[in-house]
Amino acid sequence: MDLTDSALFTVLVAMLGGAIRVSTPFLFVAVGECLTEKSGRINLGLEGNLVLGAMVAYATSFHTGEPWLGVLAAGVSGIFLGLIHGTLCSLPRVNDIAVGIAMMAFGTGLAFYFGRPYIQPPAPLLPSIPLGNWTGIPSLQRALEINPLFFVGIAVALLMSWFFRSTRWGLIVRTTGDSAPAAKAMGVNVDLVRILATASGGFLAGVGGSFLSLYYPGSWNEGLSSGQGLMAVALVIFARWDPIRCIWAAFLFGAAGAIGPAFQAIGITQGFYFFNAAPYILTLFILASSARSRSSAREAPGELSIVK
């Protein structure tokens, strides 16, 4: 039997394609949340950024005809939500988790309200780069049609890892997240660092939303995200606040999401509910098996309200 005809090959190619196509929004939201949490705040509202970003990107692309402008506008809408979250949480005795939930409702509500006229009309979408032509195998070519945002996401994650490890500002963010009194002793304006970190994280989550509406699946509607923003926030804990691990977590999640449709496509149709739940089952399994409570507690920023 030819390799390319085998069922296993089909599933593996589908998982590779799924990892590349589906992971990008998870990656952007997770890396953005990673930055915010490193500064000592949790922003649970990134689902709102994702949905609002998707809507704003689609609307901008529709009106201007320029999808990359839509990506930028989505990021700006994310900054807007991030600034609100960051500023509110800087007020005394305000809980960041509660504000995050409110921001999630606010962001999605805003997107639904202003997004109504954009559900039907077609907008120009982002292009993809065909990187699989050398393989000569149609399914692989298809899987390797990659959107530039995918590479941008990986670059941002690598850059952020370097930023945390080797730059003065990275140290400031980490110190703010681990011990606010220590940061204050260094003369750092803790609230300002956190507001900027939340706004930047919001920017990335907004850009992640633009991928959904402008590339895959490539249209705007109210059910577009179906909870991906929330899942991405959970992935940050899964990735133990490390941007590089966020990349692997997003890949894994995207690949696992392709298992359900791919199995049914090759004729393994029994138990599709189970296969469709694969990403969540896999995440729980790896989380449980990799959890070393002491070491993971060391990796968690000390100022996070869930850690305290």
Binding site: V22, S219, N221, S226, Q228, A258, P261, A265
Partner: peptide, 11 residues
């Protein structure tokens, strides 16, 4: 579930 619908259609 728009993303999964797209995955299913591609599959």
């Amino acid at each position: 579930l728009p993303v999964r619908e797209a995955e299913a259609a591609n599959a």
